[in-house]
Design a protein around this nucleic acid. Structure first.
Length: 293
DNA sequence: CACTTGACCTGTCCGC
DNA sequence: TGCGGACAGGTCAAGT
């Protein structure tokens, strides 16, 4: 569920909170969530100071002054919440937080810092992971070697976007958007939202979509990602930011999780179907029926 | 080769 | 009330 805007929101928070802190301890109550050898952790993580927090696609990278990095993928239900920092979180009240006392029963890893603060890696479904790697090896991970360009990059033009989408002519447009090797960071929410905005049926094959429509999709995708980052991401069930707070994008969503409700453009009832093995929200009027293409 | 499905997991919701 | 099953969806491995 954390997609590009959610991971970016967490990154923005952690980038404010973590740099300069020194790690004093790390423990994993679910070893698969943090499978590194204890000896490697002892040498390259304990005592390390955080220098930067970066993001690539849906992956967070916490860089350390030991020239190692913590690489983290939250998958569907992962959370990274900092508690007990001497840095003030600002105006938010504790009641804004979706998570209560930590650790809780979904806490898999706890990273402790020299100022007494703790970073909690919670993950209800245990699909997420973090691993410690030499920083120079991070980009050599298979995922980073094959992942597509950042959709919000200034370097990605509409023409570049269209060219990459067309690498999968026989696939549905939604499956292609979700393919991380085509474009990075898009998941189920923003696939549905951007396809709605571009008035493209998710089940339509790429080779049946015009360049003009794909150009609309490029613009809509960037717009919904920008808006969601501005709203602190989408909280459906589990997602919270680095302070434990929910995001509010879903109250602005036009398709995702709106089955049975009227389309904001035409008033037709949004339906939920299955495309690329995922629950898919579509306006049958604005986006048309797949069979008519 | 291109594309789809299953596995990894837990919690929630629905029907009986 | 309890229970079985469907469902939620990111990514990789395995299957068609």
């Amino acid at each position: 569920m954390p997609e590009l805007p959610e991971v970016e929101t967490i990154r923005l928070g952690l980038a404010q909170l973590l740099p300069g802190k020194r790690i004093t301890a790390a423990e994993a109550s679910w070893p698969k969530s943090f499978p590194n050898e204890p000896a490697v952790v002892a040498v390259h993580l304990i005592g390390a100071r955080v220098t930067a927090v970066r993001r690539r696609a849906k992956v967070l990278i916490i860089e350390l002054d030991t020239l190692y990095s913590l690489v983290i993928h939250l998958k569907m239900t992962g959370q990274l919440v900092l508690r007990g920092s001497t840095v003030d979180f600002g105006a938010g009240h504790p009641s804004d937080s979706l998570v209560g006392e930590l650790p809780d029963k979904s806490t898999r890893v706890i990273i402790q810092f020299d100022d007494g603060s703790k970073l909690f890696f919670n993950d209800q479904r245990k699909f997420g992971w973090m691993r410690l790697l030499p920083t120079v090896d991070v980009e050599a991970l298979d995922f980073f070697k094959t992942v597509g360009p950042e959709p919000l990059s200034d370097d990605l033009s509409a023409q570049d976007f269209i060219q990459r989408i067309r690498r999968r002519p026989g696939s549905t447009i939604k499956a292609t958007l979700l393919d991380q090797t085509v474009i990075a960071g898009v998941g189920n929410i923003y696939a549905d939202e951007s396809l709605f905005g571009a008035k493209i049926h998710p089940a339509k094959r790429v080779n049946e979509v015009s360049d003009e429509r794909l150009s609309d999709l490029y613009r809509e995708l960037r717009a919904v990602l920008h808006l969601s980052i501005q709203k602190g991401g989408s909280t459906d069930k589990n997602y919270v930011d680095a302070e434990g707070k929910q995001g509010s994008y879903l109250s602005f969503a036009k398709a995702y999780k709106r089955a049975g409700k009227p389309c904001a453009n035409c008033g037709a009832i949004i339906i939920k179907i299955r495309v690329a093995g995922r629950g898919t929200h579509v306006c049958p009027n604005c986006q048309g029926e797949a069979s008519t293409y």
